[in-house]
Amino acid sequence: MNPLLSAEQAVLGSVLLDPGQLAHLDWLAPDHFYRPVHQALFAALRKHRTDGHPAVATKEPVPLSWVTDAVDEASRHVRGLTAVYAHTLISACPRPEHAPVYGRMVLEGAIQRSVTEHAIRLHQTARADALQGEVEETLHCADVLAGVFGDLARRWGSEPRPVAPATPPSTAPIAPPPVRADQVAEDEQFLLAVLVERPKAMDEVVGWLRPGDFADPAHGQLYRCLGALHHRGEPIDRITVLWEAQRRGLLADGTLTTEQLTAICDGVSPGSAEWLGEQVMRSSVTRTAATSARAIRSLAENEALAPGRLINHALHALGPLDDVRTRWHTANGRPTPTPTAPAPSPDRPPTARVHAALARSTPRPVSPPSARLGSAPTPAVARPPSRGHS
């Protein structure tokens, strides 16, 4: 049996049995349900409550019209819903007073689906931008994703903050799309050749370009050698670069070969290190975004991960993209935009309802010793009996 499907059925069954449970589910929206028929039925039940259906106000047994009217209203928006299925939902609800807990389960499933959908969208956008050599849509999509995380965290009742998972999700490095791979490799080789030929050009890129921005790890290691020579104030030419690569063991472990170094150092022609560095950064932005999206999707597919931890781990997975974005704006001479918190939505649940959504167990007040000796503890809240259908 699917736990999420059971939770959706139990929520609807509890409301069909006891319309008063809707007062404890104001934080739950129809689109939080996975099945369209459940979305339509929950929307119909909320509409009848807003319209003042007689079943909501009465303290008598719930009339059958509460069920039939909800089915009729929902059937206007979805096919396949019958009164028989409504009674199946009623039988699927163990206890109507547990509706907030069932609703929390439905919200948890909605959070996982939302994170997955937005991660897929970021990945697709990054790959599309990589083909076109652009980054703006990718960065916009990342901003939307970060805003979604903040909104989901507030709905769940937690504080959004990046937290590294104990075991990082396993994702393979993202390579540039085949159509662009040759161009990216050519830009990287051209940039390294310019930096070897004109060492002073290192000042144009060293402040924002990092070895990890290179798609080819060998090119990144060679740039690291150039950066080390530049940092120590030593001369840069093909002999000193070859020596630095040997000292770092790059020739011994096969990361670089003398033929690669010779090809890069001899392939010199006039070029702008700053412009070429920006091309490398463009590829780095989209590649990092795609990697972050895959990591977030992997986290969302872990059903054992609680929503609060999922959101915090997903925010941590966006961290590398934030770093690359900051350096991208530095390379373009633009100030890094300050992330703004999403504006409060008019239907955002109040704090009290967020606690209801969490449906945490509330500790019972501790009775003084004298009271505990003479009598058994009484429940903190007495639940009203369930109402049946007439």
Rank of each mutant, 00 (worst) to 15 (best):
W66S: 04
W66K: 04
W66F: 09
V67I: 14
V67G: 03
V67L: 13
T68A: 03
T68M: 01
T68D: 01
T68G: 00
T68N: 01
D69Y: 00
D69R: 00
D69E: 09
D69P: 00
D69H: 00
D69F: 00
D69Q: 00
A70C: 12
A70W: 07
A70Y: 09
A70R: 05
A70V: 10
V71L: 08
V71A: 08
V71C: 09
V71D: 09
D72S: 08
D72Q: 09
D72T: 07
D72A: 12
D72L: 05
E73Y: 01
E73T: 05
E73I: 01
E73W: 00
A74R: 02
A74T: 03
A74M: 02
A74G: 05
A74K: 02
A74W: 02
S75M: 10
S75T: 14
S75V: 11
S75N: 13
S75Y: 11
S75G: 15
S75Q: 13
S75P: 07
S75F: 11
R76L: 09
R76A: 12
R76N: 06
R76C: 04
R76Y: 02
H77P: 01
H77R: 14
H77F: 13
H77D: 13
V78S: 07
V78E: 14
V78N: 04
V78G: 04
V78P: 02
R79S: 15
R79Q: 14
R79G: 14
R79W: 12
G80K: 05
G80V: 05
G80D: 06
G80E: 05
L81M: 08
T82H: 13
T82E: 11
T82F: 12
T82W: 12
T82Y: 13
T82A: 12
A83R: 13
A83G: 15
V84P: 01
V84D: 12
V84I: 13
V84E: 13
V84H: 12
V84C: 03
V84G: 11
Y85G: 00
Y85E: 07
Y85H: 06
Y85K: 03
A86F: 04
A86N: 09
A86I: 05
H87K: 06
H87E: 09
H87G: 05
H87S: 09
H87M: 10
H87Q: 11
H87C: 02
T88P: 01
T88R: 14
T88W: 07
T88E: 15
T88F: 07
T88D: 15
L89D: 03
I90G: 01
I90M: 14
I90R: 06
S91E: 14
S91P: 01
S91L: 11
S91M: 10
S91T: 15
S91F: 08
S91W: 09
A92Q: 07
A92K: 04
A92F: 04
A92Y: 05
C93T: 15
C93L: 10
P94H: 12
P94N: 11
P94M: 07
R95C: 02
R95M: 05
R95P: 00
R95N: 09
R95I: 04
R95Q: 09
R95T: 05
P96D: 12
P96A: 15
P96C: 08
P96W: 08
P96L: 03
E97V: 14
E97F: 12
E97S: 15
E97D: 14
E97N: 13
E97P: 01
E97M: 13
E97R: 14
